[in-house]
Amino acid sequence: MMEHEELIQGYFKQSLSEADSQKVIRLLKEDSEFKAAFETYQQMHMAFKKAEYDNLKAQLQAVESKISEQTKPWYIQPWLRYAAASVLVIALGVNFFFGGSDNLYDDYFETYPNVYQPVIRGAASTSISDAFVFYENGEFEQAAASFEQLLAQQDDVNLKFYRAMALLNAGDTQQALPLLEQLSETAFEFQTESKWYLALTYLKLDQKENAKSQLEQMDAIDAEFKAEQRNSILKEI
């Protein structure tokens, strides 16, 4: 003989035998106490069904919004946008801390033209013109070596300047630096240029204050030379 409680639970579980189902129907008609218990149970069951439905619906909607987010194009997906932004920030940061000045050097450095001694093709070669031929052909290491040999024979400030230029182009900053420091304090044809290249060299070595000072001094000598570039650099450092 099943307890009333068991009958009611079985009814909602849909696990009652045919005979027990008939019994529930009969008790609902005849037993008011059973009827009240049944109705309370039904109220609670339906209310829970609704409450659980609402909770599950919210849960599935949250799952769904995650799924549809994943299928959006990358730039609409928030996390990828943030990822892209952080890559950019990191790149800028790395650039700022490690490569910033070097990049300024690369941005602004250009080989200074040979304005000292035009290379006359086919002319009987002198060692000075040899050096400039190397220089103009972009063979900067040989050019630097040739200028060095020439300088050993004669002290010439202009040749010094081109040696420094050849060294810079060859990537030999260490040797170029003392030459440029000396030249930038010398009054001669390429003093402004010397200061300019010295400033760039300082930037490459991350000596911003020194670079700044050189760039500012250039105004006094030649306000026109690289004025635009100087202003941009001064704004950036």
């Binding site: 909602f12 579980k13 609670m44 339906m46 829970f48 069904k49």
Partner: peptide, 25 residues
């Protein structure tokens, strides 16, 4: 009633849910 069921204490909700909704004896 459904709204109230989401407001009662966690322990009460659990025992009532197990009995009335999940039909556990």
């Amino acid at each position: 009633l459904a709204r109230k069921l989401n407001q009662i204490s966690e322990r009460c909700r659990e025992v009532l849910l197990l009995f009335y909704f999940r039909n556990l004896t």
